[in-house]
């Protein structure tokens, strides 16, 4: 469903993603682990078609992103890192807007919006202005827009960031459930999430994959601890120069 081959992204002299290759099949939840600045978000932005690649290939459900971006984007639901939303809209209005952009109309759109609201527990705030929502609700609203069109591929950039422990638990459960019939790529730097939600995980450091396997395999590689493996394979001081990326 997601096939990434020799993916490279440079911003001037800085190599953000370095010859990365991985694939995610249907029914698989791939955790994308790595320290801050490792290239996780940049990879996700390329996979979703937001950033053009410097070199390499991305295929979504066998559709090449380079050649048929709109067809490939139709297959993807994406939750960006900062959960960007239009503050002047209501939750329902925003979801209707996103559904329309996804090509849904009439009763299909209504049904999709209602279902996304229900799945992400947004009933209480459906008619509320987004600008007045708490961080948790904002995150869930953005997650809801990613689910609207029942995509075959979900790309979630730190989906539990800013949620309280209960909400984190709900989102992890949701990811696990959705992963049964979708291909999910989700990034995190919370290691517990790998064992909680992922069927496989890769650890990325300085734009390269430095470890790949099931959570059990990765724990075994780390001598029984994912923390130890993460500590061993990632560099301590990642360059704090996300500013070299163009402002999204």
């Amino acid at each position: 469903m997601i096939e990434v081959t020799d993916l490279t992204k440079t911003f001037g002299p800085k190599v953000a993603v370095d010859n990365l290759s991985f694939s995610v099949k249907k029914g698989e939840v791939l955790g994308f682990l790595g320290p801050n600045g490792a290239g996780k978000s940049t990879t996700m932005r390329m996979v979703t078609g937001f950033l053009p690649v410097t070199s390499g290939k991305i295929k979504i459900c066998d559709i090449p992103m380079n050649w048929r971006p709109n067809a490939a984007k139709k297959k993807i639901g994406y939750l960006p890192e900062s959960a960007p939303l239009y503050n002047d809209m209501t939750v329902q209005g925003f979801l209707k807007f996103c559904a329309s952009l996804r090509g849904l109309g009439g009763p299909k759109r209504r049904h999709a919006v209602d279902e996304a609201i229900e799945t992400c527990f947004l009933e209480n705030v459906a008619r509320q202005s987004i600008g007045t929502l708490s961080k948790g609700y904002r995150h869930r609203t953005c997650l809801a827009q990613a689910l609207l069109h029942d995509p075959e591929v979900l790309v979630l950039d730190e989906p539990t960031d800013g949620l309280d422990p209960n909400q984190k638990l709900e989102v992890r459960k949701l990811i696990k459930n959705l992963g049964k019939d979708k291909a999910i790529l989700f990034s995190t730097h919370i290691l517990e999430e790998v064992t909680a939600s992922c069927s496989r995980a890769v650890i990325v450091d300085q734009g390269k994959i430095v470890a790949d396997g099931t959570p059990a395999e990765l724990e075994a590689q780390g001598g029984g601890s994912l923390y130890d493996l993460f500590h061993k394979v990632t560099t301590f001081e990642t360059p704090a120069d996300k500013s070299e990326e163009p402002a999204a």
Partner: peptide, 16 residues
């Protein structure tokens, strides 16, 4: 769109 990053949302929609 640039400051709130909603440009990223628009850029990943099937939209020219």
């Amino acid at each position: 769109e640039n400051s709130s990053n909603t440009i990223e949302l628009l850029g990943t929609m099937p939209l020219k």
